[in-house]
Write a protein that binds this DNA or RNA. Structure first.
Length: 436
RNA sequence: GGAGGCGUGGCUGAGUGGUUGAAGGCAACAGUCUUGAAAACUGUCAUUGGGGAAACUCAAUCGUGAGUUCGAAUCUCACCGCCUCCGCCA
C-alpha cells in the first residue's frame, strides 16, 4: 500500500505509474473520497471532544439536576455521533478498496513496456556450452536416468506433480548445502560485495524454515494474496498454502519497531512453494519446470530506506556469484513496468541458459518493494535520531530448486545420457563426478 | 479435543466505571558533580491521525473487533494469542 499523503502530493505521477504497470485506477475518485473521509473524521472528532468534555463535567459537578440535564443532552449527541461513524465506515471501506488496488510506483530506471517483451537484458555471463550431439531437455534425461517420474505422480496427485528420485534428490540437497554455506558466511558475502563495489554491511543471512501456511489477513498485508486463483486455500481454517517462503518470512516483524543498529536484517527461508498455476494450462507441461509444488530458498531482507537499492544489487550479486561457481550461463534482466509485480519498485530477473530448450528461462527473481509491504505490516525502524520510519524490504529467489536442477541437468548432460555433477557440488555427493 | 487461568508502555508491574495515556521500578537519553568512570542527584522519555508558522491543541490506541454507559484499561460478547492440567499424536 502507498501512503495517502504521497498519493495526494503526486497524483499525476501515481496515475502515470499505475498506467505503466497496466493497472487501472481512479485517482480523482480516491482523492474525493479522501476529502470526504477527512471532513467526516473531523466532525466525529469534534463531537467526541464535546462528549469527553461534558462527561468530565458530569463527573465533577455536584448538582444532581444539572447532571441529569447534561446526561440527557449527551444522549442525543451520541445518536448523532453513531450515525456519523456509520457513514465514515462506509467511506473508509470504499477508500481502502481503491488504496489496495494502487500498485507500487516503478523506479526511474525501470523500462516501460506492455509485457515481458519490454524487459531489458542488462548483462550476461558465461559461454553457452556446445555439444557434439543434440542436447536433450531435462525430462528426457531425467526419465531415462530414473530420477524424474511425472507419470506416477500424475496418477497419484495429478498433473504438475513429480517424484524426484535417487541422485537428483541428493543433488538437490547438495545444492541446499552449497547455498547455505554461501549465505551464512560473512567472508564470502564481504568478498561478493567488494567485487561488485557494493557499499553495504555484508551481514550473513539467518536460515529460517517458516510456516507453510498463513492466515488470509496476513497474506493481504503482504500484498501477495492476488491473484487468489493461484493460491491453495484451506477453507475450513481460512488459511493459504504459501507460494513462497517470502509470504511467511516477510511478516516476521509485523507490528515491530526495529532498531537502526540492527539493520540490515537478512533471512534465507527454505520451504516448499505451492502454486495452482491457474491460467497456465498447456504451458510448460513437460518435466519439472512448472509444478504445483517445489522447494525454494528465498531471501527476505529488511533495511534502511537509503540502502534498499544497494541491498537489491547485493542480493542479485550473490545469485550471480553462485551461478558462476556452478558455471551456469545466465542473463540479468531489468523487468519492465508491464511485467513486474504489483508491490515492486524495481524487479530484476535472472534467466539461466537451458540448452535443451535452447533458451534462457527465469530461475531467480529479485523484488525491491520499498515500504509497500511494511506499511501494512507496520514494520518500522527507529533511527538513531529517535524518529521512526517504515523499513524497506527486499525479497529474492536464492534458488528455485527445480529450475536450478533443470539448468544443471541440461548444461552438464553428456553424450551417453549421464549428467556431470558440477565441481562445487561434488563434495556434498561423496566426491562423485557423474549421475548415471 | 476437554477444563481452568491470563493478555497494560522497550522491559517489569499497579490500576475493577469518572479529568488514567495510564503510579512505582528497571532500562535508555541529557545534565550536575568528577581528572575520567561509577555512584548520587535533576530532568526527558509511547504511537498514529487532524489543525497550527510555532508554542500548542483535538481525536484514537491498555491483544483485536463489536456492545453497554453521559463516561470503559476496568462491565458484556466474539475472535486472536499465551500459560497450566487432562486426552490424542509425528
Amino acid at each position: 500500500m502507498l501512503d495517502i499523503k504521497f498519493i495526494r502530493e503526486n497524483k499525476e505521477m501515481v496515475q502515470e505509474g499505475a498506467k505503466k504497470k497496466r493497472v487501472e485506477i481512479d485517482i480523482e475518485k480516491l482523492i474525493a473520497l479522501d476529502d470526504q473521509r477527512l471532513v467526516e473524521l473531523k466532525e466525529i472528532e469534534d463531537l467526541r471532544s464535546e462528549v469527553n468534555k461534558v462527561s468530565n463535567d458530569i463527573a465533577r459537578d455536584q448538582d444532581p439536576n444539572l447532571k441529569i440535564q447534561l446526561i440527557e443532552e449527551m444522549r442525543t449527541v451520541k445518536e448523532d455521533l453513531k450515525n456519523k461513524e456509520e457513514k465514515l465506515k462506509t467511506t473508509i471501506e470504499e477508500w481502502q478498496k481503491i488504496m489496495l488496488e494502487i500498485p507500487n510506483m516503478p523506479s526511474a530506471d525501470t523500462p516501460v513496456g506492455p509485457d515481458e517483451s519490454g524487459n531489458v537484458v542488462i548483462r550476461n555471463w558465461g559461454e553457452k556450452p556446445t555439444f557434439d550431439f543434440t542436447p536433450k531437455e531435462h525430462y528426457e534425461i531425467g526419465e531415462k536416468l530414473g530420477i524424474i517420474d511425472n507419470k506416477t505422480a500424475a496418477e497419484v496427485s495429478g498433473a504438475r506433480f513429480t517424484y524426484l528420485k535417487g541422485d537428483l534428490v541428493l543433488l538437490q540437497f547438495a545444492l541446499i548445502n552449497f547455498l547455505f554455506e554461501i549465505f551464512t558466511n560473512k567472508e564470502t558475502l564481504e568478498k561478493i560485495a567488494k567485487e561488485k563495489n557494493i557499499n553495504i554491511d555484508p551481514k550473513p543471512f539467518v536460515p529460517v524454515i517458516p510456516p507453510f501456511m498463513v492466515k488470509s489477513n496476513i497474506y493481504l498485508r503482504m500484498g501477495r494474496l492476488d491473484p487468489k486463483e493461484d493460491k491453495y486455500h484451506l477453507a475450513e481454517d481460512d488459511m493459504y498454502l504459501i507460494g513462497s517462503a517470502e509470504h511467511s518470512v516477510g511478516p516476521m516483524h509485523m507490528g515491530q519497531i526495529l532498531e537502526e543498529k540492527d539493520m540490515p536484517i537478512r533471512y534465507i527461508g527454505y520451504s516448499p512453494a505451492f502454486r495452482r498455476e491457474a491460467g497456465s494450462y498447456g504451458k510448460d507441461t513437460k518435466g519439472i519446470l512448472r509444478m504445483h509444488q517445489f522447494e525454494k530458498m528465498e531471501m527476505e531482507t529488511f533495511c534502511l530506506p537509503e540502502n534498499s537499492l544497494q541491498e537489491q544489487e547485493f542480493l542479485v550479486a550473490i545469485i550471480e556469484y553462485y551461478l558462476q561457481l556452478l558455471k551456469l550461463p545466465y542473463q540479468v534482466v531489468l523487468v519492465c513496468t508491464g511485467d513486474m509485480g504489483k508491490p515492486d519498485y524495481r524487479q530484476i530477473d535472472i534467466e539461466t541458459w537451458m540448452p535443451g530448450q535452447n533458451v534462457y528461462r527465469e530461475t531467480n527473481t529479485s523484488d525491491l518493494v520499498t515500504s509497500f509491504q511494511s506499511r501494512r505490516l507496520n514494520t518500522k525502524v527507529r533511527r538513531s535520531t529517535g524518529k521512526t520510519e517504515l523499513v524497506h524490504m527486499n525479497d529474492a529467489t536464492a534458488s528455485a530448486m527445480g529450475r536450478t536442477l533443470i539448468a544443471i541437468i541440461e548444461n552438464y548432460q553428456q553424450a551417453d545420457g549421464s549428467v556431470m555433477i558440477p565441481e562445487v557440488l561434488r563434495k556434498f555427493m561423496g566426491g562423485r563426478e557423474f549421475i548415471k
